[in-house]
Simulated assay, not measured.
Amino acid sequence: MKGSDLRIRRKAQQLGSSTLAVSVPAEWAQYHDLTKGDELIVQRDENGNSLLVTPDQPAVEDVETTINADAMSTDALSRAVITQYVLGRGLIRIEAAEALDPQNYDAVLEAERRLMGLGIVEETTNHITVRCSVDPDDFDLPTLLGRLGRTEATIRSSAVSALLDGDADAARRARNRGSQLEKLFSLFLRLVFTTYRNPRLNQAVGIGTGFPLIGYRSAAQDVSLMAGIADDIATIATERVTEPLDDPVADDVRSVHDALDTAAEKVRKAVIDPDYELVTDARTSLQRVEDHSTAAIDRLEKERPEPLLALNRVHFLLERSARHAGDTLDVATHLAFRESPDVVRQDST
């Protein structure tokens, strides 16, 4: 459908004594090959204020998107491929007016390396076509969110261990693990956008319609941000901490990290299994992170061990990570209220 047709006014028509009917746009009906008698699925949003109408069997096309390589730098071309992947495109064609240069080809290979299920299916001197073989039925968002969280926890634990030991090589290995999380996160976003366009996939990806899809997107973003913070800690361990930390200092870092690790896992479980008791337990665990962090920072200010600035930075980063976990807990809280009518009841006024 054309962009100008995205918002169309329709009048409700009376059918019988108690039924109202609204026509659908002709182009939309033609696109989905709808005829008289075909079934449509009508879904309402969380508050019952809006209705979403989809065909029972929506049209599924292996949509091809074309990217003009002549108009982009190497980095921009790689990002463009990744963006089209995230938006759910099945085929992505990269073309040049004359011939693709080696940098263009390298950019496509870089995007292929960073994305799951993407591969080159056709190649000539002036174009490359890549296809994504990921099917929404192959994954579900709760499982992917768990994998994202465990990957972030592994990166963070490895970075903190390298910091405690003053092991720059281990810190570099921790940083290298970030590429796997990027793959999972891009795949997660692809499933979110694909499901948003075709709500019938909600059951396939393992969540309900409306807010859960938005909430899962937010939770995954928080995990990605936490992974970025873990990478910053690994960078500090690589560049600024060259010797093992003294025991009291190491114990403080370890206590904050362990509390964060426990809290982050409980927060993810509360999102995946919305339950008010799990939310309350996760909130208590996050409070423990804050308590350990406050005690550790107070000790740094009193004893001022070296490298002081690096250690302050590490504790600041762990606090930031805990705040992102707190943002995810807000999502879990909303989901728990949504799933627990005995906790919150809505009455019309």
Rank of each mutant, 00 (worst) to 15 (best):
V205K: 04
D106E: 11
E301A: 03
D281T: 09
E95T: 14
L115Q: 02
V241I: 11
R313Q: 04
S179W: 11
P136S: 09
R268I: 12
V343M: 10
L77I: 11
L191Y: 04
R190N: 07
T151I: 07
P244T: 12
A59H: 13
G119C: 02
A295G: 01
Q57G: 11
Q30T: 15
T129E: 00
R147T: 15
G208C: 01
L309S: 12
R304W: 00
R338Y: 01
T151F: 05
T242Q: 12
Y105P: 04
L77W: 07
N49H: 11
E61G: 09
V314Q: 03
D258M: 05
D5Y: 00
K36P: 04
V279H: 01
E319R: 08
A107I: 06
T238K: 04
N47S: 13
R345A: 08
A96I: 09
D62L: 15
G146W: 07
A264C: 03
E265W: 09
L20Q: 03
L225F: 00
T66D: 10
A69C: 13
D246L: 12
R172C: 06
A296S: 10
D330R: 10
L109H: 14
L109F: 09
D45A: 12
Q43F: 04
D330Q: 14
D70I: 10
H257C: 03
I229R: 01
D167H: 06
A153G: 12
L145I: 06
V24M: 14
L115M: 06
P307K: 01
I214M: 15
G326D: 09
G146Q: 14
S4V: 13
Q346H: 08
D232M: 02
A264N: 08
V42C: 03
A76N: 14
F193R: 05
